[in-house]
């Protein structure tokens, strides 16, 4: 039986929360002997109120940009104390791509020995779903009521460009792929970056029962690629292999039409998004492991 003790029932999260799903999968991958650094975001709140904490892991809550530095101090402290502990930074897409990016980049450049896990719900969901650097083109948010103009920041590629030992993308719709990648990350020394897509019912505007379904559709329509980067090459996960050829991709509309946040997008906007996806896969193809 897989360990799922990282999350205790009765959290403060919204029903259908994809970050909670990812948190449970984290312990399915890593088991015990984990210390979490939780930066500001939904997760700061969903842990619930003192004197309790919904996370079953030893965890240090901290300000936005301080996650990677705190983890840098922690893994060194455990090493000095001869403790075998996997340190994981748990961060949202805002804390990763925007306000916390400098410290993420700094820790990656120093090749600090921990796992950085970005749970990407593509907006500042904790404040009410406001646009982030990770919000896709055309998405409605309270700060982009006309639809965001401009594409999602491609953090996994930016992390690849840091030449760290391991970068992987995942989706909560494909648990085994996600769990395998986190497990693999644990075996590697140095900086590991794992970016998991966590579709949010309240920000993306779909019924909360469909969280896993939307997470799968993102992959099937090739909007979100599943791959890992190791030894200087990208390896596309089986779930995403069909995306390498444009003809075998599931139509993007299947992913867009299920969500309210794209309700104002026009044909031009959809074409822009499709071009973004074409370019994304061209870039992946250029770096493929052969």
């Amino acid at each position: 039986m897989l360990n799922d003790t990282s999350l205790m029932s009765g959290t403060s999260a919204c029903p259908g929360c994809p970050e909670n799903i990812a948190m449970r999968m984290l312990s399915m991958a890593l088991g015990k002997d984990v210390a979490l650094v939780v930066i500001a975001g939904c997760s700061s709140v969903t842990q619930g109120l003192a004197p309790k904490n919904a996370y079953g892991y030893a965890s240090l809550n901290i300000a936005f940009a301080a996650g990677p530095p705190a983890a840098s101090g922690m893994w060194r402290a455990y090493k000095r104390r001869n403790r075998d502990v996997t340190v994981v930074v748990w961060a949202g897409d805002g804390g990763t791509s925007d306000i916390g990016f400098a410290s993420l980049s700094g820790a990656a450049e120093r090749n600090e020995d921990f796992i950085y896990l970005c749970v990407d719900n593509e907006a500042y969901m904790n404040t009410g779903g406001h646009r982030s650097g990770s919000t896709p083109h055309g998405a409605l948010t309270p700060t982009t009521p006309e639809g965001k103009s401009g594409n999602k920041k491609e953090i996994p590629f930016i992390m690849i460009d840091h030449n760290i030992p391991y970068v992987a993308t995942a989706s909560v719709g494909y648990p085994h792929d996600f769990i395998d990648k986190v497990r693999e990350a644990k075996t590697i020394r140095g900086f590991k970056y794992v970016h998991v897509l966590t579709p949010d019912p309240y920000g993306w505007l779909f019924d909360p029962s469909r969280t896993a379904e939307v997470a799968k559709l993102a992959v099937q329509t090739c909007y979100w690629p599943l791959f890992k980067w190791k030894d200087g090459r990208i390896e596309v996960s089986p779930e995403s292999l069909h995306c390498l050829k444009k003809e075998t991709r599931r139509p993007l509309k299947d992913f867009l039409s299920i969500q309210g946040r794209f309700k104002k997008i026009d044909e031009k906007g959809i074409e822009d998004l499709e071009r973004y996806i074409d370019e994304l896969w061209e870039r992946i193809s250029l770096n493929l492991k052969r």
Partner: peptide
């Protein structure tokens, strides 16, 4: 000290 313990119902009887 600002420390908490893991437990069910940290967000209430949800």
């Amino acid at each position: 000290f600002p420390i908490t313990v893991p437990g069910k119902g940290a967000g209430g009887q949800t």
